[in-house]
Amino acid sequence: MPTFHWEDRAIEAPAGMSALEALLAAGVLIPSACRAGACQSCLVRASAGTVPPAAQLGLKDDQRARGEALACRLPVSDGLQLTPAGPSALAGELVLQRRLRPTPTVAVLYFSPPPGLRPLAGQLLHLIREDGLSRPYSVASLPEDEHIELHVRQVPNGQMSTTLCDTAPIGARLKARGPFGDCTLRDGEQDRPLLLVGVGTGLAPMLGLARDAHHRGWRAPVTLIQAGLNAEALYTPETLSRLSAWPMLRWRPVVLQGPAPEGGEVGDVVEAAKRALAETPEARVYLCGDAPVVNRLRRALFIAGASLSALHADPFTPTT
């Protein structure tokens, strides 16, 4: 009978059994739904062992490269080493160092990271308050930066956002989990244009990606569409002001309600994004903001010709 490993635990299972069946039989509860390789609920990561192509059908290239596989389509075999697909361990404590309030509803926060935590621009960190309340935020800074930069929108009666925007004193410590997500730049694509669309504080990861592209010496145009309700709602972090001199960057502010912001336009962000895609049809596309507008953008840009494998969306799902 083959023996495989789930984290540090050795599990024996009959040949021909799927890793999902074997894990469930051994009392390891991992999510699963269709058991047919379609729903991708049972995603795991294989750090060693044999992974047949059928276990990676439908996964994105970067997932395959990381060894991610669908447990329901993955036969057990000797030497197979599996772990959960996403890092779930606590990363440590962040210490709040600085808070800016560029608009009444937005806070730009700078934290010193715990040793070893160097999230990539565009990844997510879950911040955890003392009482256990947890919320995800996207990273606007680079691993090389001294501080981790996060942007927080103050939600009326929002528990975590009130803590972060108002009540947490400088020096406050918050636990963090992560980093998560693959809304990051791909290696070796310096000659491929980028289309970055950030709505509201969805600007944070897009700004991070633009800075990362600059840092990596991108040679293709980087279009950054920053969208908001009106000109007052558009905020300009100092990192964005500094980047605006970079010739590869096309920064396009778009507001729903007039008057037009300086250098920008009044209109629908979806139309602005479609026009930008038409200028650079081969662009890799990244989207971040509230779920309804991000889903609209994703669909419109897919129909306009962007391949789903080159469309990365990071929608905010509403919580209070």
């Binding site: 047919a36 390789g37 379609a38 729903c39 991708q40 059908l57 439908g58 994703r298 669909r299 897919f302 789903l308």
Partner: peptide
Amino acid sequence: MDRQMAKQRA
């Protein structure tokens, strides 16, 4: 659509 397309591929 990601899941829909994965199902349709299979």
